[in-house]
Amino acid sequence: TFYNFIMGFQNDNTPFGILAEHVSEDKAFPRLEERHQVIRAYVMSNYTDHQLIETTNRAISLYMANL
């Protein structure tokens, strides 16, 4: 899942690491979701930090390219 992918960046001092920290603390994050459209919609609806949203979009693109 995307959640498992992004958790691989925990403790990294990178934008993906920052995203992983936010996702791990977000109890409502769709952890079992595999459809990138649902993940993107969730982030757009629940996150207000523009940098975090952009990082999510980049992470989703990388995740999709590696499926």
Rank of each mutant, 00 (worst) to 15 (best):
T1F: 05
F2W: 05
Y3K: 00
Y3Q: 00
F5I: 02
F5Q: 00
F5H: 00
F5V: 01
I6F: 03
I6T: 00
I6K: 00
G8Y: 08
Q10L: 15
N11V: 05
D12G: 07
T14P: 03
P15F: 07
P15L: 11
G17M: 05
G17E: 03
G17K: 06
I18S: 09
I18R: 14
I18M: 12
L19H: 02
A20I: 04
A20C: 03
E21G: 12
E21V: 14
E21P: 02
E21D: 13
H22N: 05
H22G: 02
V23C: 05
V23S: 00
S24C: 08
S24R: 14
E25A: 14
E25Y: 11
D26F: 05
D26Y: 06
D26W: 03
K27D: 11
K27W: 08
K27R: 11
K27G: 09
K27C: 08
A28N: 15
A28S: 14
F29G: 05
F29W: 05
P30R: 03
P30T: 04
R31P: 02
L32W: 13
L32C: 12
L32K: 11
E33F: 03
E34K: 15
E34I: 15
E34A: 14
R35Y: 06
R35D: 15
V38A: 11
I39M: 02
I39T: 01
I39W: 02
A41I: 09
A41D: 14
Y42H: 04
Y42P: 00
V43K: 00
V43E: 01
V43T: 04
M44D: 07
S45F: 08
N46S: 09
N46E: 07
N46M: 08
N46F: 07
D49T: 06
D49C: 06
D49Q: 06
Q51P: 05
Q51V: 13
Q51R: 13
L52M: 07
L52C: 05
L52G: 00
I53Q: 08
E54D: 10
E54C: 07
N57P: 01
R58N: 10
R58A: 13
R58S: 11
I60V: 06
I60A: 04
Y63V: 03
Y63E: 00
M64R: 09
N66W: 15
L67H: 12
L67V: 11
L67P: 09
L67K: 10
